[in-house]
Nucleic acid binder design. Structure first.
Length: 599
RNA sequence: GGGCUCGUGGUGCAGCCUGGUUAGCACACUGGACUGUCAAUCCAGAGGUCGCGGGUUCAAGUCCCGUCGAGCCCGCCA
């Protein structure tokens, strides 16, 4: 018989009764009756009840075993009496009568309990990640992640994509997030950078004629974490296609994403392909964000004209000065108590707004603080713009356009949640298209790229030379699901002449562009195919499919918000010899330095 | 860098608003009882600088100030 196991802990059934088997695993739980001991043995595959009584010489070995000790047991598979069957376990019809027991690895008392889903402090969970990963939820999430990645890979290969690897040690990219830098030993004072994305490499592979690239790509960005953004590193399903338009890219990736979500949706509805397309400007107007959650039925309306010249002077004067007014309908809100409106108003003030005006449409006409300022005509136009019905409330936000969109978007989200309007059990996808190529930096007054500088501007060279830069759109698109930005992509700018011009508008001289992107630019001078792609974020996709709201729940070994790995103690100090070898001298801040994540 | 919330035995929480008895409950841990449990049960025990520092007070887990840590958010994320 095999030394360690003949079967797994999830394998044995009634038909195995009578067989002599050997199992290995962790002591999941013990039920000690004094002269009779039940011991649940757990491995990756399941749990099997093992039993022994005081007639066994092994009883005194088994009884003091602490939870999570690793043991090997052997003995006969015994069918359980009907009353003793556990229908909750796949192995619940049998148990193992222990005749041999070897303690492979005794466990100390646990800092976090494995056999419960009780909550533990995140710091403890990260420090003892190997224990947390044994627990059911995290174990399941990580397996789900693996299956999702396998499914993505299969679907991409079936769609004719070819998997590549690209360098991890590469050059620093001047746009975007901060890079992680790696000092060169051989070249004093010079640094590699970890790639923020394999952007230029995949474009070079297109230029090299490979036609359809993909990679399960690690991306490294030195940016602060969020609940849905792991600091340091994350994974993308990075892909790129040659000789394609935007529609070709959409048609290629939609079935992959839709297929993956259908496969792992667990009963939830999934938007059928083709996904709705929403232009950036429209998304900002109707949803107040460039990543709208379409499970929320509320649509924001522009009602600037309703308040223009109205007797509500706060809005009227602001509108005259160029502000806009947006209306956020709140279906059925008239049934809410007064405190509902007061709380929302207080919340809006916490967000920095002066307040949150509203009207309620009822049978006897309009009520609410702003109702008296709106005559029948204005009220009629308001109802027409918002579609508000009897029993609905409408909230108003008035400010300059960017601020109003941001706040209206938040009000929309909050109302959707408070009024229970969010569609349950659904993955609602959309494309957000036609992002602006440039935006104005309010602080510097300068024009900057609003997204990827390698995107092709709509209208090409012609637009760059003659149009107002702030009106130029890019062939730049995002995939959004349930309000989460899953993917960002673009049709790339493969024309050096257009690229020089595009960068010139953002204040980059020809030499600077040449110095920074020379590798890719030169390649484009030797015959580059029109190409484009995107890069769905794998961690976020798994997070959505796992029903998690925190991305660390789907990453095996995540860092905390301070970008520390509490298990491995990274980042950590290095001996002076290593610094010398790398030609580095430290210039540490006077206090607060040298924080050790292990304390 | 900023804002908000939290910090009480190994762990999850209560106590704080309204200062005053021995800081309470559950899980884990230790010991004991128990031959059919499956979140076993029952009994007992050990385990606490109430994050840290300062202040107010006759008296601080509780009130005030500062500080450290964690989470969430803003900034940032081409």
């Amino acid at each position: 018989m095999a030394d360690l196991r003949t079967h797994t802990c999830g394998e044995l059934r009634r038909e195995h009764a009578g067989a002599t088997v050997r199992l290995s695993g962790w002591v999941h739980r013990k039920r000690d009756h004094g002269s009779l001991l039940f011991l649940d043995l757990r491995d990756h595959y399941g749990i099997t009840q093992c039993v022994l009584d005081s007639s066994s010489p092994l009883f005194k070995v088994a009884e003091p075993l602490r939870l999570e000790s690793v043991i090997t047991v052997a003995g006969k598979v015994v069918p359980r009496a009907p009353a003793a069957v556990n229908p909750k376990l796949p192995t619940g019809e049998i148990e193992l009568s222990v005749a041999e027991l070897i303690v492979q690895s005794p466990a100390d008392p646990l800092p976090l309990q494995v056999n419960t889903d009780a909550e533990f402090p995140e710091e403890t969970r990260l420090r003892y990640r190997f224990l947390d990963l044994r627990r059911e939820k995290l174990h399941r999430n990580i397996l789900l992640r693996s299956r999702i990645i396998t499914s993505m890979r299969r679907r991409m290969i079936e769609a004719g994509f070819v998997e590549f690897q690209t360098p991890i040690l590469t050059s620093s990219s001047p746009e975007g997030a901060r890079d992680y830098l790696v000092p060169s030993r051989v070249h004093p004072g010079k640094f590699y950078a970890l790639p923020q994305a394999p952007q230029q490499f995949k474009q070079l592979l297109m230029t090299a004629g490979f036609d359809r690239y993909f990679q399960i790509a690690p991306c490294f960005r030195d940016e602060d974490g969020r609940a849905d953004r792991s600091p340091g590193e994350f994974y993308q399903l990075d892909f790129e296609m040659a000789f394609v338009t935007q529609e070709d890219v959409f048609a290629a990736i939609e079935p992959v994403l839709q297929g993956v979500f259908e496969e792992f949706r667990d009963g939830a509805a999934v938007t059928p392909a083709p996904f709705p397309r929403i232009a950036f400007d429209e998304a900002m107007r109707k949803y107040g964000t460039d990543k709208p959650d379409l499970r929320n039925p509320i649509v924001i309306a522009d009602v600037t004209d309703v308040f223009r010249g109205s007797s509500f002077s706060a809005f009227a004067t602001a509108v005259a000065a160029g502000a806009v007014v947006r209306a956020v309908p709140a279906p059925g809100a008239s049934a809410q108590p007064r405190s509902f409106f007061d709380k929302l108003g207080q919340w809006a003030r916490d967000q920095g707004a002066p307040g949150l005006g509203y009207v309620v449409r009822g049978e006897g006409g309009a009520k609410g603080p702003l109702a008296k300022f709106l005559d029948g005509d204005r009220l009629g136009r308001l109802v027409a713009a918002t579609g508000a019905r009897d029993g609905d409330a409408v909230f108003f936000v008035c400010d300059k356009k960017p601020a109003v969109e941001k706040l209206a978007g938040r009000v929309r989200v909050r109302l959707g949640e408070e009024l229970g309007l969010i569609e349950a059990n659904a993955f609602r996808f959309c494309w957000v298209t036609d992002f602006p190529m440039y935006e104005l930096n309010e602080d510097t007054g300068k024009i900057e790229f609003s997204h990827n500088p390698f995107s092709m501007p709509q209208g090409g060279l012609e637009a760059l030379e003659h149009a107002d830069p702030l009106t130029i759109k890019a062939y730049q698109y995002d995939i959004v699901c349930n309000g989460v930005e899953l993917s960002s992509g673009a049709i790339r700018n493969h024309r050096p002449d257009i690229m020089y011009k595009a960068f010139a508008l953002a204040g980059y001289g020809r030499e600077e562009v040449q110095a920074r992107f020379g590798g890719m630019l030169n390649a484009f001078k030797f015959g580059a195919p029109p190409h484009g792609g995107s890069a769905p974020g794998i961690d976020r996709i798994v997070m959505l499919l796992a029903g998690e709201t925190n991305i660390r729940e789907v990453i095996a070994f995540p860092m905390n918000q301070q970008a520390q790995d509490l298990l491995m103690g990274a980042p950590g100090p290095v001996p002076p010899e290593r610094l010398k070898e790398l030609h580095l001298k430290l210039d540490l801040p006077s206090e607060d330095s040298g924080k050790d994540p292990r304390r």
